[in-house]
Structure formats: C-alpha cells, structure tokens
C-alpha cells in the first residue's frame, strides 16, 4: 500500500484519468471528491462489500421453483 500525506485542496492521480481530491477535513471526517471516467464506477467500500455478498448469496440459491407472491 502506498501512503501519501496530502493537505486540503491537494489531489492524487490514479493512472492517467482518476483524480482524487481532498476537499475538506473536519475532525476525523474527510470529504473526498473522485473524478473518474464514466465507465469506472466508484463505490463506498462497505457498500461494495455488502452488494458483493448479496450477489454471491443470490447466486448460491438452492431452490429451482421460485414462489408466487400470491402465497405470502
């Protein structure tokens, strides 16, 4: 892992086309701006993990027959 110290207003380049801006620091919260190409999705890490887990759980589903909503 690369560790870099940055001040508010400074930026980091990732490759040629992703720019990470350090916008604001208040207490232990950092506001970050990410400029990335349209084709590159940007996720909060905890949401990415939660969605990955749900996708994998869905793909592991056992039943062949899906229920009818009318049953509920």
């Amino acid at each position: 892992m690369l560790l870099i110290t940055r001040r508010v207003g400074e930026k980091i380049m990732i490759g040629d086309d992703v720019i990470v801006h350090v916008m604001e620091i208040v207490g232990n919260t950092v506001r970050i701006g990410v400029e990335a190409p349209r084709s590159t999705p940007v996720y909060r890490e905890e949401i990415w993990h939660a969605v990955r887990d749900e996708n994998r759980a869905a793909a592991d589903a056992a039943p062949i027959e899906l229920p009818s909503p009318a049953k509920a």
């Binding site: 749900e54 869905a58 589903a61 056992a62 509920a72």
Partner: peptide, 30 residues
C-alpha cells in the same frame, strides 16, 4: 437480486443495488 431461502420468511431482495437493463445493456447501480 433475490437471496432465496428455505422458507418464504428467508427470501430477501437487495433494494440498495438494483440492476438496470436498457437496450441490451445492464448496470448494477447503487
């Protein structure tokens, strides 16, 4: 996406990350 379980009570849907399909292209979005 649906997490299917043994009982109806064990079925869940992921409303946070829907899949959008349009004109042959799909995206899972937040």
């Amino acid at each position: 996406t649906v997490r299917a379980g043994a009982e109806l009570a064990d079925f869940f849907a992921n409303l946070r990350a829907p899949i959008l399909v349009s004109e042959g292209r799909g995206h899972q979005v937040i």
